[in-house]
């Protein structure tokens, strides 16, 4: 994710959006939402070596709006805000432990889900969904971050 090209990144975003649309109907029965597209975008910014242009985040958001059928500007705005947050705390993250980073991303995800539901799904806005999503996402991130201890070879080339 560090030096990934724009085209590859857009393809990954597209695939993750398709994946999300497949998984979401199953997860929603457990009152859980995992916004994979948003998470991949956040992870890409988090792992990036350089400070990303807000225009990039804005256009990425518009692209996601287009492919996901969301109202134009929703993801664009949220992606821009997320980009700003990550860039602002980029150096602070280095002092954070994995658990703190996971909690940060979990809370960001819940904000994203909350805003999205406020705009697109106000009639069915559910705090239960937000709460269970927070728990599920934090646990998921912890699990993913722990994978490097169980499968160190996967991360070897990045740690050099």
């Amino acid at each position: 994710m560090r030096n990934i090209g724009i085209t590859k990144f857009l393809i990954i975003i597209f695939i993750s959006n398709v994946l999300e649309s497949f998984i979401a109907p199953y997860l929603i029965t457990f009152h859980v939402s995992v916004p994979i597209t948003f998470l991949i975008f956040s992870y890409a910014i988090f792992k990036s070596n350089q400070r990303l242009n807000p225009l990039f985040a804005f256009l990425c958001g518009l692209y996601v709006d287009l492919i996901s059928g969301s109202p134009f500007g929703l993801n664009a705005g949220l992606f821009t805000i997320m980009c700003y947050a990550i860039n602002s705390y980029a150096n602070t993250f280095k002092l954070f432990s994995y658990i703190q980073i996971c909690i940060f991303f979990g809370i960001s995800t819940v904000f994203y889900i909350g805003f999205k539901n406020l705009i697109m799904n106000l009639e069915n806005f559910s705090y239960l969904l937000l709460f269970t999503s927070l728990l599920a996402n934090v646990l998921l991130f912890l699990l993913i971050s722990m994978l490097r201890y169980y499968f160190p070879s996967v991360y070897l080339r990045y740690d050099q």
Partner: peptide
Amino acid sequence: LYFFFVCISGLFLYFDL
């Protein structure tokens, strides 16, 4: 610049909705 793009997003959202 971030603020500008967030405002633009808000405008887009407003016009779309």
